[in-house]
């Protein structure tokens, strides 16, 4: 009788524990993975890379569906996620435009309107010149720029976005002046430098690597505290080594969800993305793309995003990009 009682208890407990396990939230319909950028760009490629991984490793019972909402430098995408309050089936992949777009355009949106999930990686920036230019080091080039303010053309993606912010950081740190020419995308920026229409760029590694290997571009300095810890890239000096001034700018590649979702729903995504970043494919991807793997979630992530926002606001105000 006792044994029976115990086993009944066990059974009940078993069911209970199954019940508890089931209580962990699972999506019940396809998840809209909103990319606040156009098809073919860095954010889009990453989203379309993650989606099949989710299906391949069975990380979610429902598939991820990538949807581009690129209007207004991403503002449209952010606003649509913000508008889906409480819907756990909407997430977005953002770059630094999470900060720069609302600051520069005055769109009524702040990252606090979304639920932070996780930081997946950080993107490096490198100062490039054309390989036929006479400047072998960052010092030679920046000294030449200093001599003739405004003569040298710096190509970059968009206005009041990361490339221009870095340009302004360099101008203020070294007391020089570029003429900044905005283009539509990073690939375009690199090609304009190869074609000698501009004098330098601060392209991401992935945007310029192919031209570098083909001997058309020359990297001068990495814009971070440390050298890039990838085989081909660790030969490039940091700004501090080249110029004696420490300088760092890294671009966020992170995931946010709609506002007002529950803790269980957040945990589901954090757990899923953690598993994604542990796959072999992901590791190869970030090393191919010259990214810095830097997974961060929870309150640490929110705190980091808050600091980044303050940094962007400060840099953009100093640079005259916010009026």
């Amino acid at each position: 009788m006792k044994i029976l009682g115990v086993s009944v208890c066990c059974l009940v407990l078993c069911f209970l524990s199954i019940g508890i396990a089931d209580a962990a939230w699972q999506p019940t319909k396809p998840i809209e993975f909103i990319v606040p950028a156009g098809a073919g760009g860095g954010a889009d490629v990453m989203a379309r890379f993650i989606s099949p991984l989710v299906s391949k490793y069975n990380l979610s019972p429902k598939p991820f569906v990538v949807i581009n909402k690129s209007g207004g430098a991403g503002a449209e995408g952010f606003m649509s996620v913000k508008g889906n309050k409480g819907d756990p089936h909407v997430i977005t992949l953002t770059l630094s435009n999470l900060f720069t777009t609302p600051l520069a355009t005055g769109v009524p949106f702040n990252w606090k309107d979304l639920t932070p999930i996780a930081r997946l990686a950080l993107d490096y920036f490198v100062l490039w010149v054309n390989a036929e230019a006479p400047y072998k080091t960052a010092k030679e080039y920046l000294d030449a720029v200093k001599k003739e303010p405004g003569k040298f053309l710096m190509g970059g993606t968009g206005t009041a976005q990361e490339d221009q912010i870095i340009t302004i950081m360099m101008e203020q740190a070294f007391g020089l002046k570029f003429t900044y020419v905005p283009f539509k995308g990073g690939g375009d920026v690199a090609v304009q430098l190869v074609g000698k229409h501009t004098n330098s760029t601060v392209n991401n590694p992935a945007e310029a690597v192919s031209h570098w290997k083909a001997g058309r571009l020359r990297p001068l300095a990495t814009i971070d505290h440390d050298r890039i810890a990838l085989p081909d890239w660790n030969g490039i000096p940091t700004m501090k080594e080249a110029m004696g001034v420490d300088m760092s700018y890294l671009m966020l590649r992170g995931i946010f969800a709609a506002p007002g979702i529950t803790k269980e729903q957040q945990d589901f995504y954090v757990d899923l993305l953690k598993k994604v970043t542990e796959t072999e494919e992901w590791k190869k991807y970030i090393s191919d793309m010259g990214l810095k793997g830097a997974f961060l979630s929870g309150s640490d992530y929110a705190k980091w995003v808050g600091e980044q926002e303050a940094i962007h606001k400060d840099l953009m105000t100093k640079g005259g990009l916010i009026k």
């Binding site: 098809a39 073919g40 760009g41 690939g187 690199a190 992935a206 192919s210 058309r216 991807y285």
Partner: peptide, 28 residues
């Protein structure tokens, strides 16, 4: 040859190249 997309479709195919582990551009 250059790693820039000549059309929106090419931009998507280029994204695909990167996913398959190929870097579009002069080295391809």
């Amino acid at each position: 040859t250059l790693g820039i997309p000549g059309s929106p479709t090419m931009a998507v195919i280029m994204g695909g190249l990167m996913i398959w582990g190929l870097q579009p551009g002069p080295m391809l």
